[in-house]
Structure formats: C-alpha cells, structure tokens
Amino acid sequence: MSEFEPKIIAFVCNWCTYAGADLTGTSRIKYSSNVRIIRLPCTGRIDFMLILQAFGQGADGIIVSGCHPGDCHYTAGNYHARRRWMLFRRLMDFVGVDLRRVHFSWVSAAEGAKWAELVNQVVDEVRTLGPYKAFPQRFHENGFPVQLTVAN
C-alpha cells in the first residue's frame, strides 16, 4: 500500500449523527472507509481532550458531529458544545494545531447523504494534507507508539 490513506476519527452523538450514519448504510450509499466512528451520548459529552487524544494516537483528521441546533435530545447539549468548540478552536489555532484536520458538523438522523458527503470531503482534504506527523504521539508503557490501523 503505497498511497497514503488517512485515518479519520469521528466523534458523533448517539441521537442524530450516529443514526444519520446508520441511515447512510441502510440507504446503501457507499462512502470512504477511512472513518472510525465513536458514538457518544451527546455532543455535550465530547470533551475537547478527546480530540487531542485521537491525534496523539495517530489520527490524521477528526470529525465532530451532532444534532442541529434545536434538535438536541437533551435540549441544549449541542449549544453548550458549540460554545466550547468556539473557544477550543481558537486555542488550537493559537497553539498551532492544524485546523484543516478538525471538522465540526451538524448531521441529523435524516441526513444519511450529507454524512457520506462530509466523510468523503474530509478524507479527500486530509489525504492532500498527508499524515499528521507534527503531532506528538502517545507511547505505551513498553515504549512503542500507540497506533491505529486502517482496515482494507
């Protein structure tokens, strides 16, 4: 495998984007298999640390996605998350983290096609950027870096 295949981690909320991604599958829409989906209860639960930890374990790009404003299963989780992202994005940018690798999105349970399009776009963008080598990697106690693998 000579061509670079980016590893994308997606943190999604249980109620909208996860269901949306499910719909993509049941609708038989084909999309890039580089994405690894991690389901969380709500975007409000997506701690900003998860983003750093994913990069630290070899992710090349990250998608964070949840319910559209007004649709949150817990009424306001996505509004709180949005405020946090607004500040966290500025901080990451200030520290010099590559913001072209971090994508935020709202994908509802009905937007299976939007999910496929989003993933494909992010994968394409990150593929042109190449592997995120600049980011420090997390090491196991045995001294080897923690590595993610992309299944073919």
């Binding site: 306001a76 709180h80 949005r82 405020r83 992202w85 607004m86 935020f104 999105s105 709202w106």
Partner: peptide, 16 residues
C-alpha cells in the same frame, strides 16, 4: 460563566 450558558444564535460559521 460564559461556558455554562449559551445563546441559540452563537456564531457557527465553522460548522458544516
């Protein structure tokens, strides 16, 4: 506390 409250129209031009 700014992160404990929100406004429905907070700016979100970075969200797709």
């Amino acid at each position: 506390y700014a992160l404990a409250v929100f406004k429905p129209d907070d700016k979100e031009e970075f969200i797709r």
